[in-house]
């Protein structure tokens, strides 16, 4: 198990370095940072001055190493817009996004696990079809549109929840539903098909032949096996949610890093955009690592790999 964890950790680090490199290059390729910093009416001398002042004239690889080593040490540079350290700006905002992501994931799992299990043990009944219907609608609806619908119903007409902002837990209800609902169909369908496959497997028949009662067969023997692929998917989905929260945070004006990224792109605040891309990809890599470990805990066969 320890060997497995170390192996996975090494792999995660390698992926993290590669991802940081790619994200750095991509953002540099999307525009000249010196022009962006100097503003629209700057003269070519001013642009050149900024280019040398910020070191944009050095080879790209040197710039990456300079930025990467500082970032590894926790120094993400300074935002030319706020004139504040990027680290501080992100620190103020990341809590909102993580809260939203975690709430949305929990919401999605709480909805989809019971629905997926029920759909699997009662296939082709009205319940299964209802679950399928909810899944199809959830998959097909763009989250910004679903968010607006929720705002119209609950904030404008019923007036029971706030439209936007991030001051209290009530502000998180609609964004959580919007973001979580988007992930629900994938969990539900994966769990349904996994559960159906597991329930028809030989070891479930063995468990029943032992005289075990149905709940024990279902929750001890079937669910543990069926939930393994869901764990992997949950890590990927949570990553998507953090990225996808850019849309949801903008719709609900939640001051998380998604909203910040959107604003910063508009302001050409490259150090902030750069740091957000790095942060999200690191979270993503970490989640994948976490799901690998969790799967190894659930399934002893994985520990051998």
């Amino acid at each position: 198990m320890l060997v497995y964890i170390l192996k996975r950790m090494g792999l995660a680090l390698a992926v993290a370095v590669a991802v940081s490199m790619v994200s750095f290059m991509l953002i540099r390729m999307s525009g000249d940072p010196a022009i962006a910093l100097a503003g629209e009416n700057a003269s070519s001398e001013e642009i050149e001055h900024i280019r040398t002042q910020y070191g944009f004239d050095r080879p790209l690889i040197i710039q990456y190493l300079d930025w990467g080593l500082k970032a590894a040490g926790g120094d993400l540079g300074e935002s030319p817009y706020f004139h504040l350290p990027v680290k501080q700006i992100l620190g103020d905002r990341i809590g909102v996004t993580l809260t939203l992501g975690a709430c949305a994931l929990v919401f999605a799992l709480v909805i989809s696990i019971p629905m997926g299990v029920l759909a699997a043990i009662r296939p082709n009944t009205w319940w299964d079809r209802t679950a399928l219907g909810i899944a199809v609608v959830g998959q097909a609806m763009p989250s910004f549109w679903f968010g607006l619908i929720l705002i119209i119903i609950f904030a404008v007409h019923l007036r029971i929840l706030p439209v936007s902002g991030s001051d209290s837990w009530r502000h998180y209800v609609l964004p959580t539903i919007t973001l979580g609902y988007y992930a629900t169909p994938a969990f539900m369908r994966l769990l349904r098909s996994g559960m159906m496959e597991v329930l028809s497997s030989d070891y479930i028949r063995t468990a029943r032949a032992k005289g075990l009662r149905w709940p024990k067969v279902l929750f001890k023997h079937a669910l543990r096996n069926a939930v393994i692929p869901v764990v992997s998917l949950a890590a990927v989905q949570l990553g998507f949610m953090l990225g996808g929260s850019i849309v949801v945070e903008s719709v609900f004006a939640l001051h998380g890093i998604g909203y910040l990224a959107w604003e910063s792109i508009g302001r050409s605040d490259l150090p902030v955009v750069q740091a957000i891309v790095l942060l999200l990809s690191m979270i993503y890599v970490f989640l994948t690592f976490l799901s690998d470990i969790l799967n190894a805990v659930l399934d002893p066969r994985i520990r051998m790999m």
Partner: peptide, 18 residues
């Protein structure tokens, strides 16, 4: 599983891997 037990054909898949 108490007074009446059954042994199946496929020992490779008849035990829960977890």
């Amino acid at each position: 599983g108490n007074r009446m037990a059954m042994i199946f054909q496929e020992p490779m898949t008849s035990l829960n891997p977890c």
